[in-house]
Amino acid sequence: MATFIQLVVDGLSTGSIYAAIALALVLVHQATGLINFAQGGMAVLAAYSAWWLTARGVPLVLAILASIVLSFLLGAAVERWLMRRFERGDPDTAVVVTIGLLTLITGICGWLFTYNNQQFPSLFSLDAVSFLGVSVSQRSIGTTLVIVVVMFLLQGLFAGTKLGLALRAVAINPQSAAFSGLPVERLLMVGWGLAAVLGAIAGAMVAPQLTLTPGMLDNALVYALAAVILGGLSSPVGVVVAAWIIGVLENLAAVYIPLIGYDLKVAVPFILIFVVLVIRPQGLFGRKTVVRV
């Protein structure tokens, strides 16, 4: 039973990482109607910049904050200079652009920092705490808490501020938003920037565990995409729940189902998707949309 609870808590923590990246994907999709396959790559670049700063003697918290600011600028710049040209066009082309961006960013990271694994200092200690007789690592709890707090902040931003209202307006109907005087293009940049910030936080949380490599978040991106499919692109809450379910299930499957084991646990979300797609094609929490010709 103790192992079980430990697995569940660890699963929630990795699930939170997937949730953060999945939320970033949803944010970008809401704003611009496309899936950013470079979301993980941008987060890796942020993690590398934080790592570079800590190696220069900057305290870890400051380095992560700096990398978050940098990511916001990077996200906004990518929207302004790269994606804007493709946003109104064919979504398939736009997806290929983000794949090109992923290759480019991976290449930049590999070129600047080599493809070798780099140790990223952890924000939380690795010691376990005893909680109701079960020992759970502080890092798992810390990661989960940070991501949950970030989600609440994001929710507050969207629900309670003028900026959030404007962002939602742009997501629902860019043309009407523009007619009512909103700076749509700048808001799109803010949306991309916020998504990049989410990614950067996730990257800084997971980097100590995975060790820093240019392809560090490739798998996490796949999990996040799975969460997005399961949760439904229109439902941030659904995406987060799906990410947690995936994190916990894959951890349990790795230990309790020998056929799957640690090496094949990446298949778990896709078995889940297979089942869900056959039963509920609109995703667990998504709504059926009707498009008229």
Binding site: G100, L102, T103, L104, G107, I108, G110, W111, T114
Partner: peptide, 8 residues
């Protein structure tokens, strides 16, 4: 080491 960068 530039391969991926150039390809992207």
């Amino acid at each position: 080491s530039l391969t991926a960068l150039l390809q992207g």
